[in-house]
Design a protein around this nucleic acid. Structure first.
Length: 701
DNA sequence: GTGAACTTCCT
DNA sequence: GGAAGTTCA
């Protein structure tokens, strides 16, 4: 029912015309104005990295040309305030409706909710849809109606839901363009001069854009998918789908992938093609992990900044800039790790297996704070994806709940013996697979050393026998290969045995701290002890790659720009908000005197962004911070203006932040419940935290 | 009812 | 490989 005015279709990470529910609904409602708003400052320190911006630029160009062939074009807006820009577009086009597809990262959840509120208040009808997932997060629950807390159970349920995911929609036949004569389109700049040279190389390997994504999908389905299971262990194989960057920007619909893969599954099942079936299941699992990452982000919106299991709060991370740099540059002395890091820097891509290798090394051997690693991935990966990367790093760090710890996490009421459970859990994650793997098994990813030789030419002449552990090679062999350890290839930055010992120490320290904190809680003493989570917020100042270690970068002027990607210093960001909210926090802490695990600065940081993304104020209601509400209240169309796609159970739901308390996720590491006390702690600690910057931290490490 | 043994689960 | 859930004597 078109009401005279046109409709805005707001594109974000759904850069496709096929199976795009928001676009389809907009087109159905009449004339359409398609809009993309570029407001990267709103992303805070998750300002997209260079390669990611390159992708976006190209993807948008393709979307625009597709829209043009259908009868309209893409209006681009450069903005520091997405919601204001939306309003501007509404006003200049006389639009009466807004259509968009859901996103699930914490910032989008807040921003989109605000957009909906603001536009609705202006009399605009807002409709939002699921275009990114097989099922919306709130559709998938266990038998008790609670969200799942373990991936496997979650995925099993997804695959056996009583109704199938929506069938993919065809692209619109044509689009009637709304009146954009008074709505200008900005020229968006996604790369500066210094970045163009590096980016030029990307185009040789990648083709962004929805139609290319579709080709990549077809290629994969007709080729590598069959061998996916067999090949996916190899670092080098071409068996990956290479769909992840396409998926990140929504150039291809997960539901389309799912449907097509399932067709293959049926065919191969009929043929009793075991390898094919296994491959399909494995590939679907990777789709499932992507779904789960959104699920986690929705249910635990702090999961990109805070461990979901509390014990890691007490892990004494090694805050060592030198280690961090060596890891980034691929100079750790572990060939497989170094090869991976150099490939990442040179190409923006890393095979999934190698991601696990380098990130495990980061967390378990170097024991650097995982958020640094995650941030570096964010800056360098072509398919950087907040939710997926958060899930991945939390997994590597062993902080993903496995479904049993849920009701004991950070809950003072629980019996001390649950500690044992944590302990073992973490020991398992840390010790078991990795050290073994590093020493003996790593080679199965790259049995012939081809991968290492490609990315570490200095090791190319080393016989395969030694290629993964040159430190064991006889001197004569090294000499013959032209290698001098410590000179043209580094000695191991940390030896395995030393790392193992240090890890044991670190873990026991962690348990002591946790026990002490627990004891303090039981005594009603405040705060407890050390909180290593205050580290990860800081990010070293000089995240500059040394140019001589960048194989693909011959131009000395192509210095990477990190200023815009810098994690704000604590002094400059957290405390500004703190000041504004000082009085409130006092109230909160008085009301919430129940002793809590101490402050989590990370939480403060998210809060800063959430409360104040790009200088827009999101109101606090009743003196509390916006909290994420997954309670059932909003299921019943608390939001009457929103209309979900056509999902039978999904109608009326838009992911929403609201001040209402009592969410399931409270059970995790004080996501909500900790806010009040955290703030008060912060306030009291203000002085000391203000002084804390990277340098100071590095001295303590 | 109770504890031992067995099963199942673990991005 | 440890712990919660289940079965069985």
């Amino acid at each position: 029912m078109s009401s005279g005015g046109c409709s805005i279709v707001w594109f974000r990470r759904d850069l496709r015309v096929e199976d795009n529910p928001a676009l389809a609904a907009g087109v159905r409602s009449g004339a359409v104005v398609a809009v993309f708003i570029w407001a990267p400052e709103e992303e805070g320190h998750y300002y997209p990295g260079r390669v990611s911006r390159w992708w976006l630029k190209n993807s948008l160009a393709l979307l625009d040309s597709s829209l043009r062939s259908l009868g309209t074009s893409l209006i681009n807006k450069r903005s520091t305030d997405t919601v204001s820009s939306l309003l501007d577009v509404v006003k200049s086009t006389g639009a009466t409706q807004l259509f968009f597809n859901h996103l699930y990262d914490p910032l989008s959840l807040v921003r989109d909710h605000r957009a909906k509120e603001v536009l609705t208040a202006q009399g605009i009808r807002v409709h939002s849809f699921n275009a990114d997932l097989l099922y919306e997060p709130w559709e998938v629950n266990d038998d008790h109606g609670h969200p799942f807390t373990a991936f496997s159970a979650f995925w099993e349920r997804c695959l056996s839901m009583p109704y199938d995911p929506e069938s993919p929609l065809l692209p619109p036949m044509r689009i009637t363009s709304g009146d954009v004569s008074r709505c200008s389109s900005d020229k968006l700049v996604f790369e500066d001069e210094s970045e163009k040279g590096s980016n030029a190389l990307l185009a040789r390997a990648w083709s962004p854009g929805w139609s290319n994504a579709d080709k990549a999908l077809t290629t994969f389905l007709n080729g590598p998918l069959l061998e996916y299971s067999k090949n996916h262990r190899k670092a080098d194989s071409a068996a990956t789908s290479f769909l992840s960057p396409h998926l990140h920007f929504g150039e291809v619909s997960v539901r389309k992938i799912f449907h097509l893969v399932r067709i293959k599954q049926v065919v191969w099942a009929n043929e009793a093609n075991k390898a094919g079936e296994e491959s399909v299941n494995l590939f679907l699992k990777s789709i499932g992990l992507r779904e789960y990452s959104r699920y986690m982000s929705f249910n635990h919106p702090y999961s990109h900044e805070r461990p979901l299991l509390g014990h890691l709060k007490f892990f004494p991370w090694v805050v060592d800039e030198g280690y961090f740099k060596a890891w980034r540059q691929g100079r750790t002395g572990y060939p497989l790790v170094d090869a991976g890091m150099r490939e990442l820097w040179a190409t923006g891509w890393l095979h999934d297996r190698i991601r696990v290798v380098v990130s495990s090394f980061f967390v378990k051997v170097l024991q650097l704070p995982w958020r640094w690693g995650m941030k570096y991935f964010w800056d360098t990966l072509l398919d950087a994806d907040l939710e997926s990367d958060a899930l991945g790093w939390q997994y590597i760090s062993g902080t993903i709940p496995d479904g049993r710890e849920v009701d004991r996490i950070d809950n003072p009421q629980n019996s001390p013996r649950s500690l044992v459970g944590y302990k073992i859990q973490l020991m398992k994650f840390h010790f078991h697979p990795f050290f073994f793997f590093l020493q003996f098994e790593g080679y199965k990813f790259d049995p012939n050393g081809e991968y290492v030789r490609r990315w570490l030419p200095e090791l190319a002449r080393l016989p395969t026998e030694w290629i993964h552990h040159p430190w064991n090679a006889p001197e004569s062999v090294l000499q013959a290969a032209g290698i001098e350890l410590g000179s043209n290839y580094p000695c191991t930055i940390v030896e395995i045995d030393a790392a193992k010992a240090r890890l044991e120490e670190a873990l026991s320290e962690m348990w002591q701290l946790e026990a002490a904190s627990r004891a303090a809680l039981e005594n009603g003493t405040d705060e407890g002890l050390g909180d290593s989570e205050s580290i990860p917020i800081a990010f070293p100042d000089d995240l500059q790659m040394d140019l001589d270690y960048e194989p693909e970068r011959n131009n000395a002027n192509t210095v990477r720009h990190y200023e815009d990607q810098m994690v704000p210093s604590m002094a400059s960001s957290v405390f500004r908000v703190e000041d504004e909210e000082a009085s409130l926090d006092l109230q909160n802490s008085a009301a919430d005197s129940r002793a809590e695990v101490p402050i989590n600065l990370v939480n403060q940081e998210l809060r800063r962004e959430v409360v104040n993304p790009g200088n827009m104020q999101i109101g606090r209601i009743n003196g509390t911070l916006p909290q994420f509400n997954v309670s059932t209240g909003m299921r019943n169309g608390e939001d009457s203006t929103a209309e979900s796609s056509s999902s039978s159970s999904g109608r009326g739901i838009v992911p929403v932040w609201s001040p209402s308390a009592s969410t399931y996720s409270e059970q995790f590491v004080g996501e909500e419940s900790g806010i009040g006390t955290n703030s008060s702690y912060l306030q009291r600690q203000q002085q000391s935290h203000q002084l804390m910057n990277w340098r100071r931290l590095s001295q303590t490490g």
